[in-house]
């Protein structure tokens, strides 16, 4: 939040995708800001549009997708970028790590080939120098016998090791923004802690910004500075991560928090949200969460709320909680929290 423009700004993004039944809206409205060197999480369930938003940043959407709104990286508009500019953005400025490493690496080539290829072909680094660089990076991400791993092929590596290879590949290009789309979802929980710590350290050393896509609010809060919660194709709340537990104002954010209790805390009751998460095209004219919300009023079903200041951040809710530390009782339908 300094004077210089933020590294990444997503402004009023809308995306429609072609389906058999015509164009279908997948993102209603996504607004997002990632200042240089900071980490922002996009949290949501299936169909919320979190991955689509991330892909839109790099223009990785299907070719017939229709996008409106603006995506600015370091002040320049991505949506109108020419082929050369787009190549530069993808090769130099932004790196991406996906959920399933095996789907993004050639299984018949060695790890070493995979890691050095981009450096040699697009950066003009000499093979020996490229190899030395990625070997050092592999050690940095905690891979002990780096030179042996370089000669191995992906099927010989475990999921956790392979994800560290993908992180190495992302870091090798010295990007300014890392987009990590559920990078630890397919991993065991102890491996997840390890991989997240590695990403954390690498970011701190380099001043690298991150857009972190996840369904896990607690994980997001642990590794990010700010959190944007998405539901049915729109950002419904945006707030500093350190205030998540006390100050979340949107009923959906708080419902998500209540559905994933702390394993070590003494028996907090599990509070289920009725219904299922909706996709953007299924929503009516009102608030997308209204059909599942215990606090919904008439207004919520007819008018869609827009993001406006609430507590320490922004919330798209007609009746945001004034102070979430006072937990509203489920079933207290007649009393809107706050106001």
């Amino acid at each position: 939040m300094t004077g210089s423009p933020p590294l990444l700004v997503v402004d009023d993004l809308r995306v429609d995708l072609p389906t058999r039944d015509g164009m279908r809206r997948v993102i209603h409205r996504a607004d997002l800001t990632v200042p240089a060197g900071t980490a922002v999480a996009l949290v949501g369930e299936s169909g919320s549009g979190k991955s689509m938003t991330a892909r839109a940043v790099l223009r990785l959407l299907p070719s017939r997708a229709r996008t409106t709104g603006s995506v600015r990286f370091d002040g320049s508009e991505v949506t109108t970028l020419g082929a050369a500019g787009l190549r530069r953005l993808r090769a130099h400025d932004v790196a991406m790590v996906f959920q399933d490493p095996r789907a993004h690496i050639n299984p018949v080539r060695t790890v070493g080939d995979f890691l050095t290829e981009a450096l040699i072909t697009t950066r003009g680094v000499r093979p020996r120098a490229a190899e030395a660089k990625v070997t050092a990076l592999l050690r940095e991400v905690g891979i002990a016998d780096a030179s042996r791993r370089m000669r191995q092929r992906p099927p010989e590596l475990s999921g956790g090791l392979l994800q560290r290879v993908m992180i190495t590949a992302a870091l090798a290009g010295e990007p300014r923004l890392l987009i990590a789309d559920e990078p630890t979802t397919a991993l065991d929980v102890t491996t997840q802690a390890e991989v997240m710590a590695i990403i954390d350290e690498a970011r701190a050393e380099r001043g690298l910004a991150m857009l972190f896509i996840t369904h896990d609010l607690a994980l997001a809060a642990a590794v990010c500075d700010r959190i944007a919660v998405m539901y049915a194709g729109g950002v419904v709340e945006e707030l500093p991560a350190r205030h998540l537990h006390e100050r979340a104002a949107h009923p959906y954010t708080r419902a998500l928090l209540a559905s994933r209790p702390d394993p070590a805390a003494t028996a907090e009751p599990l509070r289920a949200v009725p219904g299922r998460p909706l996709s953007a095209f299924e929503t009516g004219p009102g608030c997308a969460f209204a059909p599942r919300c215990a606090h919904a009023q008439d207004l919520c079903h007819t008018e869609r709320p827009s993001l406006s200041p609430a507590g320490e951040g922004l919330a798209a809710c007609h009746f945001p909680a004034a102070d979430a530390r006072v937990t509203p009782q489920p079933g207290a339908r007649s009393t809107p929290h706050g106001r």
């Binding site: 050690r139 940095e140 905690g142 891979i143 002990a144 016998d145 090791l161 929980v189 102890t190 997840q192 802690a193 390890e194 991989v195 997240m196 710590a197 590695i198 954390d200 350290e201 896990d216 607690a218 994980l219 809060a221 642990a222 590794v223 537990h245 702390d262 394993p263 070590a264 805390a265």
Partner: peptide, 25 residues
């Protein structure tokens, strides 16, 4: 204990068991 401590929760920070240069891969 390690399993429990790896579950993200309020106030949790990810930690790594392997050193940089990895004593344990």
């Amino acid at each position: 204990r390690r399993l429990r401590d790896s579950v993200p929760r309020r106030g949790w920070k990810p930690t790594r068991r392997t050193a940089q240069n990895g004593s344990q891969a």
